[in-house]
Structures are given as C-alpha cells and as structure tokens.
C-alpha cells in the first residue's frame, strides 16, 4: 500500500511551485514582537503565509522560529511571562483581537508538536477528542467516519485499523506522530502548524511524515519549523530564515537555497553556523 502511495506522490510533487505572491495570504504577521519577561525574543517580524502551501521556518537554535510559530495559534498564551506585540491576521482577522478567543482560533489553526504527545487514551479517542470537544460531529457514526478519514489522511489507518481501541502511547514514535497529525486534522483546521515534527523520529518515519505533509498541502495551509535544511528543501514551497529573533529573508524555497539574498542566509545554508 505504501508503494502505491509513493507513486501517487511522485506524480504530484514536481508540480509543487510557490503560489504567485499576489495571492491573498492566509495568515499575515505584521511587526510581530515577542517578549519573555524582559527579554525580547522576536523583533518586528513581517511574514505572509500563503494558502495551500508549505512554509518552512528555518534558522539556528533559539532564533525565534518556534516562538513565531506558537504566536500563530496563540499557544504562547499558556506561558505566563510571554507578551506579544504587533499584529497577526488570519483571513484578515486579527487573531489577538479581544473578541476572538484562543479556543476558536486553535480550532482553525491546529498544531503538531516536536515530541509526539498522544493522550493516554485509545487511538480512537485520541482522534475523536477534537471533534468531540468542538461538537463537529453529532452522532457516533459521524465520529467513526471522522476518525477513519483522519487516520486515512494521516496514512495510519491501515496500520492501526485493527487496534483502534488500544492506547495511542503503545504505537511507535513515527506512528505516534502521525496519530498526532490525524488528531490535528480531525478538527479540520485551516492551517496546521508543525513544530519540528520529525526531530524525535528515525529517518524512515521522517520520510513518511514528509510525504504526508506534501499530501496535506492540498487541503491545508501548513507552517513547519524545522532544524533540517534538507527537510525544508524537500517539503516546502516557501522558506523563511530567522536569525537572532529577526526574520532575515523569506522567499521561494528554491531561491532561498540556491540564491539567497542575505549573506547570513548564505552562511547558514552552507553550514558555516547553526
């Protein structure tokens, strides 16, 4: 089955080209500043995220890329000392507006974390969790259907269909991460944020996730933080390079990796620092 999938994918992938810049961005960061207590972690970041595209955020450790990602669905709200300034919009709506609440926002902007974090429940319940709390599904049959499609989209259904009621923590690392992705897409968000989703996985599992990301692009807008430049080059259409809390450069992935404008980008992708 994975054979088949791979073939389907290899047909699709050459077509991946960045959307023309004139399209309306799905999300837009405008002079985003983030402070942890006294320390400023992000300086005036302006970044557009185009719909149905994979945007990769790269840069050395501590450059602020994860911080920016967490701003996009207000996960930073969880941290007491964190303060965000500037403006971030989703479909031209300010997401930090007081009338929009984080719960609503996070249903539209889902997130997948660095370490697979399945809940200590069954695989089924893990996936059903989102639809249940948001009330997307009315009946048991609806939920069954959502669980199945989400797991299928995450490429996990075949592997787990016989043990949906076993705990999600019993899966392998790669399977767990795909479960987390299935869990995120079960809510059917518009944007999926991924914070180094493969950093805790082995190469085979990583390849599967990357393949999955590419497929998900058709239905979702994806922002991925990654440590690996190869990964950014493989999965993304646009790449943004962060350094010391600044957005140094953003552009088509191909351009960033072949012909960066900024010398710092050049230095990073050629491995001089990072």
């Amino acid at each position: 089955m994975s054979e088949k999938k791979k073939m389907a994918k290899s047909d699709a992938s050459p077509a991946s080209k960045a959307t023309p810049p004139n399209a309306t961005p799905k999300m837009k960061g405008d002079k985003v500043k983030v402070f942890y207590g006294e320390k400023q972690a992000l300086m005036d970041v302006d970044l557009d995220i185009q719909p149905n595209e994979v945007t990769a955020l790269i840069g050395p450790s501590g450059c602020g890329k994860s911080t920016f990602l967490r701003c996009l669905n207000r996960m930073n709200d969880v941290i007491d000392i964190c303060r965000v300034e500037g403006k971030i919009t989703l479909d031209d709506e300010d997401i930090y507006d007081s009338t929009l609440d984080p719960v609503q926002l996070r249903a539209r902007v889902g997130m997948v974390f660095q370490k697979p974090n399945p809940f200590p429940k069954s695989i089924y319940d893990n996936v059903a969790y989102g639809p249940r709390i948001h009330g997307t599904a009315q009946s048991k049959a609806d939920i069954d259907e959502i669980v199945e499609t989400s797991l299928t989209k995450a490429g996990l259904f075949g592997e787990v269909k016989d043990r949906l009621l076993e705990p999600g923590t019993g899966l392998s690392g790669g399977q767990q991460q795909r479960l987390c992705i299935a869990r995120a897409i079960a809510v059917n968000p518009e944007v999926i944020l991924m914070d180094e989703p493969c950093s805790a996985l082995d190469p085979i599992a990583t390849a599967k996730i990357e393949e999955l990301i590419d497929e998900l692009r058709e239905n979702y807008t994806i922002v991925i933080v990654t440590h690996s430049m190869q990964q950014a080059a493989r999965v993304s259409q646009r790449t943004a390079f962060f350094h010391l809390g600044e957005l140094v450069e953003v552009g088509d992935t191909e351009q960033i990796f072949t012909n960066p404008n900024d010398s710092r980008t050049q230095g990073y992708i050629t491995g001089r620092f990072g």
């Binding site: 669905n73 996960m75 969880v78 984080p102 719960v103 609503q104 926002l105 996070r106 249903a107 539209r108 889902g110 997130m111 997948v112 974390f113 370490k115 974090n117 399945p118 809940f119 200590p120 429940k121 969790y129 989102g130 709390i133 948001h134 987390c180 869990r183 995120a184 809510v187 944020l193």
Partner: peptide, 27 residues
C-alpha cells in the same frame, strides 16, 4: 503530567477545563 500533553490539547482548541477533564485527569 508532562506539559506536552497540555500543549497537545490546547493546540486542538480545547479549553482548560476540557484539557483537565479529558487529558490531565485520565493521564
């Protein structure tokens, strides 16, 4: 209970009490 489980739940748009009742207490 590790923070990652809380993050996972908040990331799906759960409220605090939903996270507590459905994720933290079972864990």
């Amino acid at each position: 209970v590790p923070q990652s489980l809380r993050d996972g739940s908040y990331g799906l748009g759960a409220t605090k009490s939903e996270t507590i009742r459905h994720v933290i207490i079972p864990a």
